[in-house]
Each structure stands twice: as structure tokens, then as C-alpha cells.
Amino acid sequence: MGETGGVLTRFKNPEYTGENRCLPCTIVNGLIAAVVSVAVGAALSTSSSVTTGTAIGGGVFLVSVAAIYFRGYLVPGTPELTKRYFPPWLLSLFGKGPAAGTTYDSDLDPEVALQEVGALEPCPEGDDLCLTETFRADWNDEIDRIKAEDVSRERLLDLLDIDEGTVEFEEFGDAFQASVNERVVGKWESEAAFLADLGAANVLADRYRNWEQLPVYEQSQLLNGIRLFIDTCPECGGIPEFGTDTVESCCSTHQVAAVSCTDCDARLFESQPI
């Protein structure tokens, strides 16, 4: 049995099966398989016998299901078709669209709040905002200390006042997210982004009045807001650069605004352009 399973596994396409399986593709191909099987069975029932038509139609369906299971799709090119023709709102129902996620109502304005605690200030030239020198120094010191102590992810959860036992981490390549009771409370594009947030959380906990009383999603808003302004990569010390990138999943392709360090290819911030 084990040997048979190993042989069958070799026929699997890992790009579109297992954790990478595209649910919309599977559903669409499953419907196609059902329609084709019924059509074949009906046609043969008319020209031959009902028993023969039903048997062959059922056989077509089983072969089709096997193809979907092992290859991820029945009709060649289905993943590309879902990217091109499925609207974002439909993909988001399956957690595949760029708009997938949980949205919270909040009156918090991160830029205003971060200026009030001395983390941001108007740039000397231009209308943009920049890190204050004191916050930059404190932030970098915290990141250096965290790296030296090899602090784990659980430390950030402590600062966000989240019970470790209720947290579930999901990995997506270099990126990962934390969920509490199936509600996403934090997303990090890389370990470098996580280090940036952990250092910023330590500094903001000292500067922001009643930090501990803030809802987790508002704390996350502030951490995401300040990370956009980071000017030194926590992982390799390189200079982050702002640009746009195309993010591609099994079912969708969309543009994002991104802050990345080209020295070590660490993604520090990612957001859909408005």
C-alpha cells in the first residue's frame, strides 16, 4: 500500500495541490467534470442502454476527479483563467483575492498618533513625514538588542497582550501571520519585518500612553504605520527602497506598493496601492 501511494504521489503536481491547491480552480473543474460526465452518460443512454451510459458517465467522472486531485485541475490553463477572469470579490470569498482579510472599524489615525508620541515629524524638505532622530535611535537600539538576545515571536505577542495559547501562526514562504480565534491580528512580510515591529513595539510601549489598553488591531495599525518609514533593514543593515511589485498566487495577480531591502531581498512592507 505504501509503495502504491509513493507511485501515485509522483503523479501529483505540487504547484497546484496540497497547500497550494486553488480552491476556485477545484470547484470550477469539479463542476465541469460533473457536467461532462452527465452529458456523456445521457448521450450513451440514448444510443445504447441506460446502464451502459450510467457506468461510462460515472467512469468519466471518477477519472476527472482523479485528474483534479493529482494535477489540481482538469482543464489545462485553469489557474491562468481564474487570474484573468475571476473578479477580486469572488476570489476574496476563497481567501485568494488581494482584498482578503478582516477589516476593523477604528477612529485611529496612525500618522497623527505617531506624530503625537514623537515618532514622526514633517521632513525638513517637502510635505512628507520622516522618523524623528530620537525614535530612529531608540528603534535601532531595540532591534540590535533583540537580535543579540535572539528573542522569539512570542515576545511580540506579550507586548500586544495576546495569550500565547490562543495564537495560531501560518507561514507563507518568507511571510507569516498570527491569528487569534481565527481573526488575523498581525501580518509580517518577512522575519525582518517582524524584527522591525518587535523593536517598534518596545519603543511605543514606553512612549504611547495606555499602550496596553489599545485594541490589538490598533496596535497593529501603529506598527504597520511606523514600519513604512523604516530606513535601515533590521536583517542586513541595507537601505530599504520603495517601489511596486506584482504579487502572484495560484488564483490572482495584483500590484502592490512595497518597501524592500535589495541587499538581502527582505520585504519590509507591502500594501495595495489605493
Rank of each mutant, 00 (worst) to 15 (best):
D141C: 01
F94W: 12
P124V: 07
L160R: 05
R84M: 14
F135R: 03
P124W: 09
L131Y: 03
F94C: 15
K83I: 02
V167P: 04
I162L: 14
P110Q: 04
L195W: 04
E133T: 11
S106T: 11
S106R: 10
W188D: 03
A100G: 09
F86H: 03
K187A: 14
L195Y: 01
Q115Y: 00
P110D: 02
S92L: 01
G118D: 05
S179Y: 11
V151P: 00
L108E: 11
Y85F: 14
P122N: 08
P124N: 09
D174C: 13
L108W: 07
D144P: 02
E142Y: 01
A178H: 06
E149Y: 00
E125S: 14
E142M: 12
Q115C: 02
Q177W: 03
E142W: 01
A196L: 05
L120C: 03
N140M: 11
P88S: 10
K147N: 05
G186E: 02
F176N: 00
D141E: 09
L93N: 13
A192C: 10
V184N: 13
F86N: 04
Q177C: 11
Q177S: 13
S179A: 14
V180H: 08
D163L: 13
G101T: 04
V151I: 09
K96M: 14
V151M: 06
Q115W: 00
F86P: 04
E121D: 09
A178R: 09
I162H: 08
V185E: 06
D144L: 15
P87Q: 14
F176A: 01
A193R: 00
I162N: 03
E170C: 09
A178C: 10
K96W: 07
K83N: 06
E170L: 14
L156H: 01
G186Q: 06
V167K: 04
K83F: 05
E142D: 06
P87A: 13
A99R: 13
V180R: 12
K147L: 12
